[in-house]
Amino acid sequence: MVHQYKNNGFNIVLDVNSGAVHVVDDIAYDIIPLFESCSKEEILGRLGQTYPQGEIEEGYSEVEALAKDGQLFTEDGYEAYISSFQERPTVVKALCLHIAHDCNLACRYCFAEEGEYHGRRALMSVETGKAALDFLIANSGNRRNLEVDFFGGEPLMNFGVVKELVAYGREQEKLHNKNFRFTLTTNGVLLDDEVMEFANREMANVVLSIDGRKEVNDKMRPFRKGAGSYDLIVPKFQKFAESRGQENYYVRGTYTRYNLDFSEDVLHLADLGFTQISVEPVVAKPEEEYALREEDLPQLFAEYDKLAAELVKREKEGRGINFFHFMIDLEGGPCVAKRLSGCGSGTEYLAVTPWGDLYPCHQFVGDEAFLMGNVTEGIQAKGLQGEFKRCNVYAKEKCRECFARFYCSGGCAANSYNFHGSITDVYDIGCQLQKKRIECAIMIKAALAEE
């Protein structure tokens, strides 16, 4: 299977099943879609009016050589392999600790509804947090590196417990030959020098929530009484990013129908001095005024194109940034098994509520149909866990023939469930945007390879 497209002046050909990426001239670009269904003579006949015969023959030979070498028209022979891979025993690798089901902001698009996840306000106790870390250690098998994300709500509303749990983790990792990688997400309201110093010592990554331009951020991320949060958080985030040497963090925003020109927000964050940036599409019920619509896609595609071209320009000028959704590794990256088997939610990754209940991931918290167990008794819903384990690319009809499947792994189970009532469908708007981002990310690689 081959996916070919034009972007920013480049003719790009992705050989989907091998991962090979080719930048081609117009002749090769026109030969490739004919190659499998036409003979060489037929191709010469069809393209002879447009290109010199010798050039077509040269192009044909190059396409033929790449096909023989397994870099064009590679077949998908992975389905049986992935099915057997997914039958293997899995261990728990990562927990998302909902350290606080409470928040000091009232972001309008928050899936947690002011941090409360459709339930009551609550803070995780030290005892529950310790039981969660014990559960992770006990269910991680021989795996040494374990990930724990402090999430909310707003985790800094329960910072004392965060500190105690990190100390407990450091103590336990020595006893059990484990290595905890702690991460933290914050809206910045309670961020101060003490938190920064602690995070710089203990947190492998921090995610700092901000949407971009002041008017964009403050429209969607107000305090409960309505005031905006931008002026309070920006100087603190700038100081925090600098204190981390401009690495191991993301400023992370959400764009909505109110800022379809979101590339301006990405560049605004870059111009504030941030170098690690993610601005991501909102996922919302269609009836919400700020929800993205099918009709918005052409404008959003144009924004991604515009952003990609600008990031190439800035990279060449020596002031590049890292945009999370354009990160792609064409040389390395994970193996086929990982690429096709999904994110790990429900099996390798679990979310823990303040009272110790387990859910497949943070997006499912509060939906009792997805309650999987708790940290003291472990996983009870084995059948549900099996559904998540089998939720790979080949379980999703829309993904089986998609060119992007090796880069998106079938998308987000929670988004699929929220839009279609099934974890084996896909969220269609998100899917379209993901495909566009992959095209842009590959184009950036092509543009920078020109140098």
């Binding site: 990426v21 397994g70 590679t74």
Partner: peptide
């Protein structure tokens, strides 16, 4: 090659024998 420039030498099929959490996969 004159008409085609290949950006990478990766072959995913080679990771089947050698290979085998992320909310990125593209890790």
């Amino acid at each position: 090659m004159k008409h085609i420039k290949t950006l990478n030498t990766k072959k995913l099929q080679n990771t089947v024998k050698k290979g085998g959490t992320s909310c990125t996969v593209g890790q």
